[in-house]
Simulated assay, not measured.
Amino acid sequence: MVWSGLGPRARIRTGIGYLIVAAAIGLAATTAALAQDKRQNTPGEFDYYVLSLSWSPSFCEDAAERGNSGRSQAQCGGGRPFSFVVHGLWPQYEHGFPEYCDRDAWLDRNIMTSMLDLMPAPGLIFNEWKKHGTCSGLGPRGYFETVRKARAAIKIPPEFIDLADPKTVSPADVEGAFIKVNPGLAANAIAVTCNRSRLSEVRICMSKDLQFRGCDEIDRRACKRDEVTMPPVRGG
Rank of each mutant, 00 (worst) to 15 (best):
I218V: 14
P120I: 05
F97R: 12
T42P: 05
S170E: 01
E217V: 15
T146E: 02
E128T: 06
C76H: 09
V2A: 08
V181E: 07
T193Y: 07
S58E: 07
R39C: 10
D216Q: 13
R198H: 11
G123E: 06
V202I: 14
C223M: 09
S207H: 01
C76W: 06
G88C: 08
G88S: 08
Y18N: 08
A189D: 02
D216N: 12
T134Q: 03
L53W: 04
L27H: 13
F160L: 13
F82M: 03
A28H: 15
N182C: 09
V174H: 02
D117H: 15
C223R: 02
F84W: 01
C101V: 10
M1P: 00
E65W: 00
R13P: 12
A177H: 04
S52G: 09
E94M: 04
R141E: 11
N182F: 00
E99T: 11
L89F: 03
Q36K: 15
R196N: 11
S114V: 12
G235Q: 07
W106D: 13
A32S: 15
G70V: 06
T30S: 13
T134V: 09
E175F: 00
Y93T: 08
G7N: 14
Y18T: 11
G184E: 04
A22R: 06
G236I: 11
E65P: 00
V86P: 01
V192M: 05
R203D: 07
A177N: 01
N195M: 05
I154M: 06
L199D: 04
R151T: 00
I204Q: 02
D47N: 15
R71H: 00
Y18Q: 11
A105I: 09
I12Y: 12
V85M: 05
A191P: 02
P158H: 08
K38M: 14
